[in-house]
Computed example of a mutant assay.
Amino acid sequence: MTATTSAVEDAYRRCEEITRSQAANFAYGIRLLPPVKRRALSAIYAAARRIDDLGDGDLPRDEKLYQLAETRAALRRLPTDRGGDPVLTALGHAATRMPIPLAAFDELIDGCVADVVGRRYDTFDGLVWYCRCVAGSIGRLSLGVFGAAQPEPAARLADALGVALQLTNILRDLVEDRAHGRIYLPAEDLRRFGCTLELGGTGFTDPPERLAELVRFEAARAARWYDDGLRLLPLLDRRSAACTAAMAGIYRRLLARIAADPLAVTRTRVSLPGREKAWVAARALVGRTG
């Protein structure tokens, strides 16, 4: 093994370690892929995680924006200039072997910049823009690894699935995000249900029945995006479809729990136990979703 080959192998191993330790839900799907695709998708995840951590970290606002701009520039230099960084090394190597649309990382960074500057959304269309940036972009990057029988329809459906996943995240993290000054749900929806998402001593100050109606409404909207996005599966090969179905299945079951008890998101971080995630992944491998 040459020194260059050894560095690439080490870089992939580092990305897989990051995925196993930090991708609590996605790792169940990624492990269903054959090794070459699994390593490439781990590189995509590790790069995306780095961007997310910059946006969510404790650095001052201006330093976050500077670091995001530097990361954007480094990603734009791929696949040739990898700078000796293990994540960029693995991602750049994967991009020379697969049609990974690296430009989609620009959209992910746009979404993180929106978080850093505290952007809020007046309408659902505005929120969809954000969801497509931070999650739809990952779906389209993943398609570069998976391949698809019909690339253009597949890209649209991957985008829709990303919107569904991000809407689920937004509902799950409603209290945590608000505590950090972030409100993602559209202002038009807050007005419609008479909610402000203001926090008091014991949680949201909104009347519980109104808050429950708001969360239930948004959950139903997310469910429709899942229905659309999951039409991607027949366009993928068996293992890629299983990976996607496992990831989406875990989040869709999480959404079902939120819809069944909308106020649960105000009491605790709603999640699935590991055994249930493994069950969803096993079902995905035999062609069943949910």
Rank of each mutant, 00 (worst) to 15 (best):
L185G: 03
S142Q: 11
V145P: 00
G144H: 05
P151H: 15
E213T: 02
V145D: 03
L197Q: 07
L165T: 02
F217M: 01
L235Q: 09
A187G: 11
L161I: 11
L174S: 01
L174C: 06
G201A: 11
R172Q: 09
L214Q: 00
D189N: 14
L185V: 08
P234Q: 12
A264M: 08
E209V: 08
L171K: 00
D237Y: 10
A179V: 11
R216N: 08
P234K: 12
E218C: 10
A158E: 03
E176H: 14
W225I: 01
L171Q: 00
Y184S: 11
V265D: 01
P208M: 10
R210W: 01
D237M: 08
L143M: 12
G203S: 04
A246D: 09
G139F: 04
G194M: 06
D189W: 13
A212S: 04
A248W: 09
L174W: 08
D177P: 05
P208T: 10
P234N: 08
L190T: 12
F193R: 04
R140E: 14
R178W: 13
R253T: 15
R182M: 13
L263E: 04
D237K: 08
L185A: 07
A256E: 15
L199R: 09
G181N: 06
A220N: 13
G249E: 03
L197Y: 09
A245F: 06
A220S: 14
V265K: 04
L190Y: 14
A158H: 05
R231C: 15
E218N: 05
G144Q: 05
P208Y: 06
L161G: 00
A242L: 07
L255Q: 10
G162A: 15
L235M: 14
Q150C: 09
Y184H: 14
L197V: 10
A259E: 09
G194D: 07
L255G: 02
P186K: 13
A148H: 03
A179T: 13
P186V: 15
R156P: 00
D237V: 11
V175F: 05
Q150A: 15
Y226D: 00
N169Y: 10
E188L: 08
R216G: 14
D261N: 14
D261F: 04
R238T: 15
R253L: 14
T196C: 13
R172L: 08
A264I: 09
D237F: 06
V145M: 13
T202L: 10
L143Q: 03
A179D: 14
F193V: 12
G203P: 01
E176N: 07
V265T: 06
A256Y: 06
C195Q: 06
C243S: 13
L211R: 00
F217E: 02
G139I: 03
R231A: 09
P151I: 15
L161H: 04
A219T: 03
E188I: 05
P234A: 10
F204G: 00
R231I: 09
A245W: 07
G200S: 02
G200N: 02
N169M: 07
T266I: 07
